[in-house]
C-alpha cells in the first residue's frame, strides 16, 4: 500500500475527471433537448464578488401565481401523489402533531413567454396591493412553471415545443395553507429550487457580460432600507434587458450558454 497508494490516488483523480467529462460530452452531444432564446429578465447575472472571476447567469422563474392561496393551482394534491408524496399519511399525522413531507426530486416544465405568462401577468395586474412598483411587463421573468413530473420523456411528449418549454430537474415539496372553508388546511405543491440554477458563461462568450459587470460595479449601491419588508432588492435588475442568451439543454437536462448577444 505504501508504494501503490499515491499511484492509485492519482488514478482516482484521472478516472473521476474522465467520468465527469464523458457525462458532459454526452449532454452536449446530438440534438439539444431544448433551445430557448432568453433575455436578462430570465437570466440576470448572478451576484459576484472580487474573489471570484467566473461569470454566471442565474435562471429566474416565477415562484407563485399572484393572488392564489397555493403557489400554483395546478400543483394540487393529485399531482403531489403522482410524484410519490403520501398525502393521506401526512393528513393523519398533522391531526396529532406537525408532520412534514420530505421534498422530492422531479422535473419541472418552465414555459417561456406563453399562455402561462399571460395568465401570470393578468393575475399580477389584478392584484392591487403587494406590488413593489416594478413594471412586470418589462422586468419580470417570463418563465412560468406549468407542470411537474417524474419522467422527463413523458413531459416532453406533453410539451413538445423545444423552443418554449424547458424541462429542468428540481426539488419539489408540499406546503399547506389555511385556505379552505372554516380554516381548513389545503395541501399544495411547491417548487423549492431548480437543481442547476446558476449557469456558467464561458470566457469566449462572456466579454459583453464582463463589460456590463464592470459598469454595474461602478454604480454605487443604494443603502438597504431596513424598514422595508420582504426580501432584499435583487442586485442590479435592469429594465429593459440589455442582452439575450441562447440557452440549450442537453440529453441529461443540463444547460449551457451557446450565445450571448446585446439587445438594442
Amino acid at each position: 500500500m505504501r508504494r501503490a497508494g499515491p499511484i492509485l490516488a492519482a488514478v482516482v483523480v484521472l478516472v473521476a475527471n474522465a467520468v465527469a467529462l464523458v457525462g458532459v460530452a454526452r449532454n452536449l452531444s446530438g440534438r439539444p433537448e431544448a433551445e430557448v432564446l432568453l433575455t436578462e429578465r430570465e437570466l440576470p447575472m448572478a451576484p459576484w464578488s472580487d474573489e471570484s472571476t467566473g461569470t454566471f447567469v442565474r435562471l429566474e422563474w416565477q415562484r407563485s401565481l399572484p393572488g392564489s392561496k397555493v403557489e400554483w393551482p395546478w400543483f394540487d394534491r393529485a399531482k403531489l401523489e403522482s410524484l410519490g408524496f403520501d398525502c393521506a399519511r401526512w393528513e393523519e399525522e398533522v391531526r396529532e402533531r406537525y408532520g412534514r413531507m420530505v421534498p422530492r426530486r422531479a422535473y419541472v416544465v418552465l414555459e417561456y413567454d406563453g399562455p402561462a405568462w399571460a395568465r401570470w401577468l393578468e393575475a399580477r395586474e389584478a392584484e392591487a396591493e403587494g406590488t413593489d412598483g416594478e413594471d412586470a411587463r418589462v422586468s419580470a421573468s417570463r418563465l412560468v412553471p406549468i407542470d411537474v413530473g417524474l419522467d422527463p420523456g413523458e413531459l416532453r411528449r406533453l410539451y413538445p415545443d423545444r423552443s418554449r418549454c424547458l424541462i429542468v430537474p428540481a426539488i419539489v415539496g408540499a406546503g399547506r395553507t389555511e385556505g379552505g372553508l372554516g380554516g381548513k388546511v389545503v395541501l399544495g405543491g411547491q417548487i423549492l429550487y431548480v437543481l442547476v440554477s446558476e449557469i456558467h458563461v464561458p470566457k469566449d462568450l462572456g466579454a459583453l457580460l464582463a463589460a456590463l459587470r464592470a459598469a454595474d460595479a461602478a454604480v454605487p449601491v443604494p443603502p438597504r432600507d431596513e424598514g422595508r419588508p420582504g426580501p432584499p432588492v435583487p442586485q442590479h435588475r435592469h429594465a429593459p434587458p440589455r442582452y439575450e442568451v441562447l440557452l440549450r439543454y442537453g440529453v441529461r437536462h443540463e444547460p449551457w450558454v451557446a450565445e450571448v448577444r446585446p439587445l438594442p
Binding site: 497508494g5 499515491p6 492509485l8 490516488a9 482516482v12 483523480v13 478516472v15 473521476a16 475527471n17 467520468v19 465527469a20 467529462l21 457525462g23 458532459v24 449532454n27 467566473g54 454566471f56 430537474p169 437543481l195 442547476v196 446558476e198 449557469i199 456558467h200 464561458p202 441529461r252 437536462h253 443540463e254 444547460p255 449551457w256
Partner: peptide, 24 residues
C-alpha cells in the same frame, strides 16, 4: 468542473473524494 459545465450534483463525487483521501 461541475460548475463550469453546469452539471447536476451527484453523490459519486463524494465516493471519489473518499477513495482519494483513504488511499493517501
Amino acid at each position: 468542473l461541475g460548475a463550469t459545465f453546469n452539471v447536476e450534483p451527484a453523490p459519486g463525487a463524494f465516493l471519489a473524494w473518499s477513495a482519494f483521501a483513504g488511499l493517501l
